[in-house]
Amino acid sequence: MSVEAATHARPGQGEAVNGTALPLVVEHVAKGYDLNGQVVPVIADLSLTLRKGEIVSIVGPSGCGKTTLLNTLCGLLAPDAGRIRWHGRQVVGQPQNVGYMLQKDLLFPWRTALANTMLGLEIRGVPAAEAEDRSRAMLDQLGLHGFADHYPATLSGGMRQRVALARTLVNDPDVLLLDEPFAALDFQTKLLIESDMVSLVRKGGRSMLLITHDIEEAVSIADRVIVLTRRPTAVKATYEIELGSDRADVISLRENPDFSRYVRRIWADLDVAIQ
């Protein structure tokens, strides 16, 4: 098995692979912020693809523009240049069936765990009874049985992030965009939630784009790891992660000798020391 950096994402490969459009194709996207009349480039030129059922991790130096990238992908910010296609189509506004999750759980303090989970279904006009059943089932699946009627203030950090995950997954998204969702949690809690999440994502055949600072996390979860350069950012290298069959077990994966080899390679690529 080679641990060499693969070729960069192939732009233009957007349309059909086996007759179906790829969930996400990003071509030459650029984005800058306007700071006191001056444009500060954040994303220089970035292309990537996300295939169906694929988990891709993005790592990059702090402040390189990862959050900006995700916000641009889901239509919260407009790109200055380039094309973003969801399932082969360019979207105005927010793409459908995309779940977005941030490091902050963003739970509404005035809603119980159940009501927070129901938020997306409620917005889409799903009948209340159905929304409640689905939300309860999702909370149960994520180990929150018996906490449905708790307000966020009475839940632990890990439980809150599980509720946030339930709120995302209950909408049955095809694609998940995650921005360091578990960075604030302790190591054990993080591993447990992650393995729950990965098995749910893999079981449902969903695709996932995960931003993280944690290289081990990236390698243990992803099929592919994309390393970004510093600002203005672009793709520096892409690694196909091949660690055997049972990818859902993110805990025992870490004992695989190839695991640490990937981690070291990516770590070297990130050149965090030189800032």
Binding site: N71, C74, G75, L76, Q94, Q96, V98, G99, Y100, L102, K104, L106, F108, W110, L119, G120, E122, I123, R124, N171
Partner: peptide
């Protein structure tokens, strides 16, 4: 919180839904 508004948008909320389900209760 701007991130809460982002969240509502990614869940497909209209401006009125953001107003009713987020802005009003958050202002209480």
């Amino acid at each position: 919180d701007g991130d809460q508004i982002y969240l509502m948008k990614t869940l497909g909320a209209s401006k009125f839904q953001i107003f009713r389900k987020l802005v009003i209760p958050a202002s209480l």
